[in-house]
Write a protein that binds this DNA or RNA. Structure first.
Lengths: 137, 137
DNA sequence: AGAAATTTGTCCGTATGTATC
DNA sequence: AGATACATACGGACAAATTTC
């Protein structure tokens, strides 16, 4: 099989098809996308092409991929807006090993953490923690 | 040559090297990057790997590519701050005591963590961690 | 104006590494 | 430890846009 891509590239057609399934609900939010090999078989495309399609969806924020686990459809943010309230608090925390590496400081160094709780109907649905270096100026 | 990518992937090392040349002025702003085949020869890497490196620079806004022409170093935005890029990673983590209380689950229960790194001029400035329950129905 | 050369874009197939289950 | 799934890398082929002759 040669490599014809007249008009629309193959990977874009696959991406559009998957996007359609997500937005129409054929693939519900929060569940994993078919695996790369499943998509490879379904669309008769090489894995690289399938990965290109998934990358496009990822760039669009529609899905998120986890190494070794799969690619998951991102939960729909629009629906959360109704009964949701947020609660924010700030505190000083010590850098763990990972944060220390990211910020290039020593383990245990002081960081500012802002924690936002997002409640839907009373129950905590999402916790967002933002870390920054303390402002020194 | 097999395909070892212990530690840092090859394409990232190439991207870092090119970024270094750009930021140090070895490759001035506004001029074209070496062609893909030139980079292929210089780094002894496959073209796909070189293209992956260039894609990383493109995502970071350092270069822009034009079909049939080449990849050009973006003119200096040098009014700072807009040189920020993000990197997102998702993983499964065990709930610590606090998160367990917030989500009303047991300590150690599986949560999905999405971590976003916000870089300004290469250095991590902000880390955002979002926690959710897996498989929300 | 047209043909050839150059350069990036797309696609295939395969192999191996790494993370997760 | 084995199976599954995504990540990285190679090499080859052809397509499309641009430049050069």
């Amino acid at each position: 099989m040669p490599t014809p891509h007249y008009g629309q590239p193959r990977y874009r057609a696959i991406a559009d098809e998957l996007r359609e399934r997500i937005e129409s609900g054929v693939i519900p939010r929060g569940v994993p996308l078919p695996t790369e090999s499943a998509l490879t078989a379904e669309f008769r495309a090489a894995r690289g092409t399938v990965r290109q399609a998934i990358a496009a969806l990822r760039d669009a924020g529609l899905v998120a991929t986890q190494h070794g686990r799969g690619t998951y459809v991102t939960p729909d943010q629009h629906q959360l807006a109704e009964n949701s309230e947020t609660e924010t608090q700030q505190r000083k925390v010590a850098a763990d090993a990972e944060l220390a590496a990211l910020f290039a400081v020593e383990v245990g160094a002081a960081l500012v953490e802002e924690q936002i709780l997002i409640r839907a109907n009373g129950a905590v649905g999402t916790v967002v923690r933002t870390y920054r270096m303390p402002q020194t100026k």
